[in-house]
Design a protein around this nucleic acid. Structure first.
Lengths: 102, 102
DNA sequence: ACAACAGTTCGATGCCTGTCGAACTATCTG
DNA sequence: CAGATAGTTCGACAGGCATCGAACTGTTGT
């Protein structure tokens, strides 16, 4: 089984965070996991009409940017927003993005 | 002289804002104009080693995304962060981006 | 063991974007 | 008017990125 490394939050770059968020699909994903609870990666959950391959690509970008972590249980994966760490390192950023109306 | 239209803040899209901020050069520009004061576009001010053409391109993206406005006086231009409007429409976002350490 | 299932990875494709030099517009100054 | 100055626009180029189908890895269940 492959493992899913997350960057140390101290090494996370703001530009990478912003680039990861600057995509409609990924922003929608982040909105869905805003509460910090693990959410299964199953496609039908996200309300997006994209291939598994494409979704996997977006999940990878979110994780490598430092926004999420991946929890593996058996053959199902869940992603989780690294809420506390992000709030500590980028105070107010996630809240501001999530609170934005449009 | 060409004029420099700014989008109505109500029409501004968060994704466009984030995409505009998700570039090292543009982020540095925004940091430089964080106080909301007009700042001349003269290249040597920004501490970036880029052509006038490239800087002009970045200024355009910032303006079209809704982040800045352009003030023309004679043959010199200044850009200004649309601080109040942005804070009203995306509360905390600019602050969070500017306060981020890395 | 075998088939179904959940995701990832790979290669290809087309689009978008950052960068530049060169040509252009407009303003100021001698 | 002529030259200098501030900035934009255009065309080109290279690299990046979102997307997909197909092949692959690992897991569950029969």
């Amino acid at each position: 089984m492959p493992d899913y490394p997350v960057p140390d939050m101290a090494d996370v770059d703001l530009v990478d965070i912003l680039r990861a968020l600057a995509d409609p699909t990924r922003l929608q994903i982040v909105r869905k996991i805003a509460d910090g609870q693990p959410c299964p990666k199953s496609i039908d959950v996200w309300g997006v009409e994209l291939t598994k391959a494409t979704m996997s690509h977006h999940f990878k970008i979110l994780r490598e940017a430092g926004l999420t972590r991946t929890l593996v249980t058996g053959r199902t994966h869940a992603i989780q927003l690294r809420r506390d760490e992000l709030d500590a390192c980028f105070p107010g950023l996630i809240d501001a993005v999530l609170d934005a109306a449009h």
